[in-house]
Simulated scan of single mutants.
Amino acid sequence: MPKAAIFDLDGTLLDSVDLHALVWQEALLKFGPDVSFEQVRGQIGKGGDKLIPVFLSADDQRDHGEKLEEWRGNRFKTEYLPLVRPFSAVPNLLRRVREAGLQIAIASSAKKDEVDKYLDIARIVDLVDLATSSDDVDESKPAPDIFKIVLKKLKIDGADAVAIGDTPYDAEAAAKVEVRTVGVLCGGFTENELRKAGCAEVYPGPAALLACFEHSLLRK
């Protein structure tokens, strides 16, 4: 039996991936290259430290990478954050996880202030034992830093935890510290992409994981 469930937020518990892709596309167009929505969307799940180098040269990053991310963050909070909604059954899923005796942690590539707001939007503030963000680590997913922090703070080994995420980057990061991953399709990646990245199980979304809870990795 696992001792903890480590949840991603964007695309896993919250329907926010398209909104993040839109604001990143706007920011990149404002400060640099002409990139498509599809190009940007495939990178959502990474933090800015990993996403920006995909589209900006080293010189461009030095010149305006910091300004780009600051502009993106401010625009997301004012224009897009109010549009974020949780997927169905999110509080019920987390309650079921707690009833099964697991600790609940959040491991997100979002900034801390965004994570705090997300927990409120999803109505899970009182269900989470530990919330971590990109502010807590040097490198975001697919680097394993955020999972290392969670395991250290929960005082457990990787084999005692299960990660739940919607991107290959979640699975890749978790695997580096021996955490098994349950994938969800609601973030937009395909089942094949998630399984290739290392997801042991894949469900359509939180409601489906709740419905199949007794047979999932969270109970094995």
Results as ranks from 00 to 15, higher is better:
Lys148Ile: 08
Val90Ser: 06
Thr12His: 12
Glu114Gln: 04
Gly205Trp: 00
Ile44Pro: 02
Ile106Met: 10
Thr78Pro: 07
Asp135His: 04
Asp138Lys: 15
Gly101Arg: 10
Gln103Trp: 12
Asp126Arg: 04
Lys153Glu: 12
Lys148Cys: 13
Leu194Phe: 13
Asp135Ser: 09
His64Leu: 14
Phe189Ser: 04
Thr167Ser: 15
Asp8Ile: 05
Pro204Gln: 06
Ile124Ala: 05
Arg95Val: 11
Leu14Ala: 14
Ala200Ile: 06
Pro82Ile: 07
His64Val: 09
Asp166Lys: 10
Tyr169Ser: 03
Ala4Trp: 03
Ser57Phe: 00
Ala5Asp: 06
Gly198Leu: 08
Thr12Trp: 05
Gly11Asn: 11
Pro206Glu: 02
Ala21Met: 06
Gln43Ala: 14
Phe76Tyr: 09
Asp59Leu: 12
Asp15Cys: 03
Arg195Val: 08
Lys46Asp: 00
Lys117Pro: 00
Phe55Trp: 13
His215Thr: 13
Leu210Gln: 02
Glu38His: 14
Val202Asp: 02
Leu51Trp: 09
Lys67Leu: 11
Ile52Tyr: 13
Asp120Val: 10
Ala105Arg: 08
Phe76Met: 02
Gly198Asp: 05
Ile106Trp: 04
Arg72Val: 07
Gly165Cys: 07
Ala159Ser: 15
Leu81Ser: 10
Ala207Arg: 06
Ala173Pro: 00
Gly47Asp: 02
Ser36Tyr: 15
Cys199Thr: 03
Pro168Ser: 08
Asp116Ser: 13
Ala58Arg: 14
Glu66Gly: 09
Ile6Thr: 00
Asn92Thr: 11
Glu178Cys: 07
